[in-house]
Design a protein around this nucleic acid. Structure first.
Lengths: 351, 351
DNA sequence: TATGGCTGAGATACCGGTAACTCAAAGCCG
DNA sequence: CGGCTTTGAGTTACCGGTATCTCAGCCATA
């Protein structure tokens, strides 16, 4: 009847600071000072304590330490919508690298675009006294907004630039970026354009981007023949079949703007495998400058957003704010249109 | 003036349990019981306490709670090598979903295949008394192995199945899976095969997979003309240029096995854009059944590994172990060969 | 009616560190 | 050499909860 419990160490046999202090013949407080590098001990004492730490294999209980000093933990709550979407994993990677390099740990939440789940996660994470929070997007549910606002920790909102952030904001101006792409589509001679995206974007930054794009199209005198929003993940195959559906109902379209490059790549594959020439029969534009864009038969037209950098900067801002350095409210990491070769009619159509 | 009793200035202005208890006219202990659902209070008392919780906006300090009960946190340390590699993000997604749904939080480490960084992260995470750990791979640095072994928390090793795990192991038999692919390549008529991978895999499971593959090739009487390992990330473009390099130095190769589908897709794009027919001129086999495989002009030959499930099962095992339920030492989540249409010479070459 | 179990609730003692205060001895100065 | 500052180190009081023990009522059963 031996269950797995006895396989592991008993709780009480963990060495604690008192054990170390006793073994070294000093007080707990002195041992604590040595370990934290605070002044107030002689080199000899230091050595004695460290010797015992080594010998006994003492590991600090940071739960106790943080609690005792009324301090924060070294955890930073990081909320992103989706791990299946490369843009977010890139941002996450930027965040994680910076945090880890600075001795902080990312506590992850993948919201799946579910506000309620996010809220729940947020409540839990806040109860652990995190050092800070990095959240994606600027449109929070009222309760979430309230929680973020009343929390005593610094918050960085990433993705879409926010002129009046809760605390700090790092991202790009999604509207402007969308506008730039719309303008380019018109410039390259497209007149009857369409949009393909997934429902995921509606509540998020893609909305602002989409608005910017629409404005540019309208201003340029072109027509939006249809916008097709599917209930699926923004991946390759989704782009493939969504394009099929789009072209079936609106064959007159001459260029498509996709929510991201992976959808666009799917669309590209559909088009070329069905005898359509890109861009002469149909123009294709993606978003995000994702890796796939580099290996398509023609360089994909897209907008480069420095996602990795966005994550890094967000983490940097948070850390600066934690160390009391002045940090900007708002940081624009910029975007860059990638002309590529999948847009443009009749002219400039070489590989 | 020793009126410290009443005018006790509190460091934090945060509402604590004592405040709630006072306001509700009960003892701290009773309030604690109500909030934790432990028995020992009347419905009326319960209501009074909850009313004050609501009114005062009390949020538990879990740092204090975990510390007081000598307990663990709800954090689970999760270490994966790379976020730029879809297979790992899929596993992570599986883990994260399950953990979050069960009230645990993933504390992320992206090791970048760096043992030292992992070690450092591990030390920090362990000092926060995590509930458990999920680590990728089975080949740990000696110091890491020691730390994992001596830690008082359950550990799940994922990826490659481990017959003698530290604690628990969830994954697939990478050797067998590699063997299956090797066998299939021989069966489909390939005689002079090659391998393309990145340095990232060497220290990890891809080694076992690679060994299995080699064994099958040898057993089948075929020749491995070259194995090309590049110092880069296992992404689309890497596969593209690595294939170019490979074909330049070994044009006689008739089939290539790639470390993953993204590399393979890059290779496919290179081959077809340079006038080679897949699979008649060159066979291409990937790994992981990644999304890209579905939109190539021909279905990519690959091996499906249930990454999402692997992550979910790993988290499940950990949670079971935490709740004292019996959990298996080793769980094989299985793999499945996907024949596709990018392997096979002269026959079976329709789309 | 006496005994004993059950239930709601309070009192107390921590958990493992750190902040803040205290104090003796040593160092420094004119 | 006295007084003042510095320095190494100890003492005490917590931080905000929970484990554990205690105890008064209350009900059921013999």
């Amino acid at each position: 009847m031996t269950d797995g419990l006895e396989k592991k160490k008993r709780k009480s046999d963990r060495v604690n600071l008192a054990d170390v202090a006793r073994a070294a013949g000093v007080s707990k407080m002195t041992a604590s000072r040595v370990l934290n590098g605070t002044k107030g001990f002689s080199p000899k004492t230091r050595e004695r304590v460290l010797e015992q730490v080594e010998k006994l294999g003492y590991v600090q209980n940071r739960l106790a330490a943080a609690f005792a000093s009324q301090g924060k933990s070294t955890f930073v709550g990081v909320s992103i919508p989706d791990l299946g979407n490369e843009v977010f994993t890139q941002v996450l990677e930027g965040i994680e690298r910076k945090l880890n390099a600075s001795g902080y740990q990312a506590v992850l939440c993948v919201s799946q675009y579910d506000g309620e789940a996010t809220q729940e996660w947020l409540e839990t994470v806040l109860s652990w006294q995190p050092a800070g929070l990095i959240v994606t997007g600027r449109n929070h549910a009222p309760a979430t907004r309230k929680l973020l606002k009343s929390s005593a920790v610094p918050v960085v909102e990433i993705w879409d630039l926010n002129s009046s952030p809760l605390d700090m904001s790092v991202g790009i101006n999604q509207y402007d970026a969308g506008y730039a792409m719309g303008q380019y589509m018109v410039e390259t001679g497209h007149q009857r354009v369409g949009y393909i995206g997934t429902h995921h974007d509606t509540a998020h930054s893609a909305t602002a981007r989409f608005e910017g794009w629409k404005a540019a199209i309208r201003t340029g005198g072109a027509t939006i023949v249809h916008t097709h929003v599917v209930q699926d993940t923004p991946g390759f195959y989704t782009g493939y079949y969504a394009t099929e559906q789009f072209l079936k109902s609106c064959p007159e379209v001459d260029a498509l703007f996709y929510q991201n490059d992976n959808l666009a790549a799917g669309g590209f594959m559909f088009a070329t495998s069905h005898g359509l020439d890109v861009p002469n029969d149909i123009g294709i534009a993606g978003w995000g400058d994702l890796p796939i864009g580099a290996i398509l038969p023609k360089r994909l037209t897209s907008v480069h957003v420095p996602h990795l950098r966005m994550g890094r900067v967000a983490a940097e801002q948070l850390l600066m704010s934690l160390s009391g350095e002045p940090s900007s409210d708002t940081i624009d990491v910029g975007f860059k249109l990638i002309p590529g070769h999948t847009l443009g009619r009749r002219n400039d159509t070489q590989v």
